[in-house]
Computed example of a mutant assay.
Amino acid sequence: MNQAAAQRHAGQDLIKWIALITMVLDHMRLVWLATSNLFVIGRLSFPFFCLALAINVSRTQPGDLFTRSNGRYLSLLVLFAALSEVCYQLISTSGNYNVLVTLALGLLVAWGAQHKTLESLVLAGGALIAAYLLNDPLMYGFYGVLLPTALLLAIRRPEYFALLPVVLCVVINARTGLWGRAVQLEPFAILALLMAALAPLLGLALFWTSVPFKVPPVRQWSYWFYPGHLLVLLGIRNWLWA
């Protein structure tokens, strides 16, 4: 068995599947307004994507930054962030960049925490500066870029850092106005923030638990899935709203 197969983790693939499925459910509200309540379950998607990223980073050898696999990982994120941006802007009204931009910056910051070399820290610092300057149009903002690193720390030392991603998930969702609505005891906002808070804990539990069934692997096709599902939803919306 090769190293990649040996390291394959059913929980990690399950995390990726949940991230993809909840992303689609969340984006359905862009097509059918009646499905807007799916926004609540959609609060799982971004934390699960960040956790999948953090798991990948945690399995790299500290100090070994410039590898072919790391280069491919970042290149794919950047490439598909660029390819997806047109699709995302056509279907979204948020004015934000697509989520792959946030994940690419988050990867650079997580590399800094994992490798602690001069090169990785320079990349992480540059990503943090970019996230700060792009806070408004960046999906989930500056704190969203920090989430993969918070999850990486939680994987390493859960006794110290398990609650850090919980706090960040609440903060990045509160900036959408949910906090003010939750204070007014609006059930929808309260449920959305609770789901956001539970998301990293649920994801970490899936990672740490032995999944008792086989999970189909999520491979590089998932990069195509992101712009692909946006195009499908855009086509459905244009057909329904014609």
Rank of each mutant, 00 (worst) to 15 (best):
A10Q: 15
Q12C: 09
K16C: 06
A19R: 00
A19P: 04
L20P: 01
I21A: 15
T22I: 06
D26V: 05
M28A: 09
R29W: 08
V31D: 02
V31W: 06
V31Y: 04
V31Q: 04
A34N: 08
N37G: 12
L38V: 00
L38G: 01
V40E: 00
R43Q: 07
L44N: 03
F46T: 03
P47G: 06
F49T: 09
C50H: 11
A52E: 05
L53K: 10
L53T: 12
I55Q: 06
R59P: 03
R59V: 08
G63F: 11
G63Y: 12
D64C: 07
D64I: 09
R72F: 08
V78M: 08
F80E: 04
A81I: 06
A82H: 01
S84C: 04
E85T: 05
C87V: 01
Y88R: 04
Y88N: 02
I91H: 08
S92P: 07
T93C: 03
N96R: 14
N98E: 12
V99E: 05
L100E: 08
T102D: 01
A104S: 13
L107C: 06
L107V: 07
L107N: 11
L107D: 05
V109I: 15
W111Y: 14
G112W: 07
G112M: 10
T117K: 13
L118Q: 14
E119K: 14
E119Y: 08
E119N: 06
S120Q: 11
V122N: 02
L123G: 03
G125Q: 11
G126R: 07
A131N: 12
L134P: 00
P137R: 11
Y140M: 10
Y140L: 03
Y143A: 13
G144C: 07
L146Y: 04
T149Q: 02
L153F: 07
I155G: 02
R156T: 06
R156C: 05
Y160T: 03
Y160Q: 14
F161S: 03
A162E: 03
A162K: 07
L164I: 11
V167Y: 03
V167M: 15
L168C: 09
L168M: 11
C169P: 01
V171D: 00
A174F: 02
A174S: 15
A174M: 10
R175M: 07
R175N: 03
R175C: 09
G177I: 13
G177P: 05
L178P: 00
G180Q: 10
R181Y: 13
A182L: 05
Q184L: 09
L185W: 15
E186A: 07
P187W: 08
A192P: 01
A192R: 05
L193N: 09
M195T: 15
L202C: 12
G203F: 08
F207W: 14
W208Y: 15
F213Y: 12
K214S: 05
V215I: 14
P216N: 07
P217E: 13
V218Q: 02
R219D: 10
Q220Y: 12
Q220S: 12
Q220K: 13
W221Y: 11
S222M: 10
Y223I: 02
F225S: 02
P227N: 13
G228R: 15
L231G: 03
L231C: 09
V232M: 13
V232A: 09
V232Y: 05
L233G: 05
L234S: 14
R237P: 04
N238G: 11
N238E: 10
W239L: 15
W241R: 12
W241P: 00
